[in-house]
């Protein structure tokens, strides 16, 4: 019997090792798997490379993982937020490295990695500082950059509903990077509001098929990052 449920966030992230590459879903707080990130902070893995669109806000969730000194490098499109000083301090002091990637290139690098495509050509970034050191090639009179696919050891993502086979449905714009990240990681861990039995989801409505998901954790009432930040919460 296939049953991908695990007891809780702590069990779900228990084997994330030092030096792992971890993709973390979310665009701002939408889709940020905050309970899984907090479990990862508790677990203690360090020297992580984190692939995520942003670097968190306040001192909870992704910003708290950074603040705890666990991340040696972020691969990211927009590491600036109005209400967090965590990443800027780490970046300026050289403790966390940054690989800045245009947002669409980041999404496509992740998708390509998950789809078995080692590299691809894109028009994005041609003639800009982000093209430096990258191979270029002309197709049909236009210049393109070679970008590498991205894979990860783990992905931490958030959905609304999953079944025990790991099929996932998301909530609105919280979907964002989660489907491609689920494809690109060796072990994808999804936290969802509710887990149902096989047959409980309409197969036509499933966004991430269970083959891309290894572990499912039910977090019935996930915290909202903006509410924690507004309340001045910190983690741990």
């Amino acid at each position: 019997m296939i049953d991908k449920r695990v007891a809780g966030p702590a069990e779900a992230v228990a084997d994330i090792h030092d030096g792992a590459t971890v993709m973390i879903g979310g665009f701002g707080e939408a889709g940020s798997p905050i309970e899984l990130i907090h479990a990862l902070i508790d677990q203690g893995a360090s020297d992580l490379t984190v692939v995520s669109n942003n670097t968190g806000s306040g001192e909870v969730g992704l910003a708290a993982l950074l603040k705890a000194g666990r991340v040696s490098k972020v691969i990211c499109s927009f590491p600036r937020t109005a209400n967090s000083t965590v990443f800027p301090e780490l970046y300026r002091s050289g403790r966390t490295k940054l690989e800045l990637v245009p947002q669409g290139t980041l999404a496509e690098r992740i998708r390509a990695g998950g789809a078995g495509i080692p590299a691809f050509y894109t028009p994005t970034g041609v003639g800009t500082p982000l093209a430096e050191g990258k191979e270029t090639r002309e197709f049909d009179g236009q210049e393109y950059l070679l970008e590498r696919g991205l894979r990860a050891d783990f992905a931490l993502i958030k959905g609304r509903l999953a079944d025990t086979h790991g099929n996932v449905i998301y909530n609105k714009t919280a979907r964002n990077f989660a489907p491609p990240m689920a494809m690109a990681a060796a072990v994808t861990i999804v936290q969802v509001g509710e887990v149902v039995d096989p047959g409980g989801l309409d197969p036509e409505a499933i966004i991430t098929p269970g083959i891309f998901v290894e572990r499912v954790v039910e977090v019935a009432t996930p915290a909202h990052e903006s509410e924690l930040v507004a309340a001045g919460s910190t983690y741990p």
Partner: peptide, 10 residues
């Protein structure tokens, strides 16, 4: 400055 590009280049 903290470099941040988002989706503008795309």
């Amino acid at each position: 400055a903290i470099p941040a590009v988002g989706g503008a280049m795309d």
